[in-house]
Design a protein around this nucleic acid. Sequence first.
DNA 1: GTACTTGCAAAGATTTTGCTTCCAA
DNA 2: TTGGAAGCAAAATCTTTGCAAGTAC
Lengths: 147, 147
Amino acid sequence: MDAEGRVARRPLEQELVSRGVRMTRQRRILVRIIQEAAGHLDAIALWERAKGEDASINTVTVYRTLTLLKKHGLVDELDLMHLEGGKHYYEAKTTRDHIHLACVKCGRIQEFESSLFEKLKGQIERDRQFRIDTVRVEAGGLCDRCK
Amino acid sequence: MDAEGRVARRPLEQELVSRGVRMTRQRRILVRIIQEAAGHLDAIALWERAKGEDASINTVTVYRTLTLLKKHGLVDELDLMHLEGGKHYYEAKTTRDHIHLACVKCGRIQEFESSLFEKLKGQIERDRQFRIDTVRVEAGGLCDRCK
DNA sequence: GTACTTGCAAAGATTTTGCTTCCAA
DNA sequence: TTGGAAGCAAAATCTTTGCAAGTAC
């Protein structure tokens, strides 16, 4: 949001509008934070950031918005190998799927893209006649710095 | 367990004993159920099966045993795309990693092995100098019967 | 015998639901 | 205006912890 309080329209928001979803002040804030987040946010981290822009926003709204985005296939839900408890992490779905590498020692999360991964998905779809909507790959282990 | 109540020693149990882990009646039961389970059990399903053999077994013991097995890297923890809530599923770690395909419509879980997957893991370890201890691949979508 | 494990109760963490009021289209 | 959304409180779900009593080795 700029100094005048204008909110630039972002892809996620556009996507929701085009699907006939009602945009509220809260949804706009949440969706933009997810869109612009560098890392992976869990519901509470998302809520805390949102409170900076709207102190009255409720965790329930955060959960409901995440459910909405999941339903529309606009976010991926991750567990990051449960390195810190049972929460879920979210990221805006990108055009290209990627793998998450979670270091069990330092907690760093790396992302990894690979054409082999794309091939693997193709193989699954062909061999099993399974239509993949979402795919999650998470590896736990030791990163280069820690091993 | 046969008619005399003897419990055959199973790989998981052997593995624990060889690591100096104390084997209790409860652990023997739980570990055998996991070992022999056809599908993927969550903590409560595991507990319910265990109660058939020892009515006094407690859910806390189930969770503690699962934590123990995870710590020793003897089970894999799955989420199966959270098709039914936030619980976790467990399976004895096999020699070969496999991919889980979860049908969002019928809930069926299929497993898929592939040398491409093995290659992908190798690529990650080489490119990122990341030592993979555990890896989880889950795909959600429509199975051949449902699409 | 001793250190580790269990069961019970209670607490903790995360997420969902019911219901009333409010607001976007 | 009107159906969907937000906020609040309470509940539900899944998992962990503290502690006394029991048990494997």
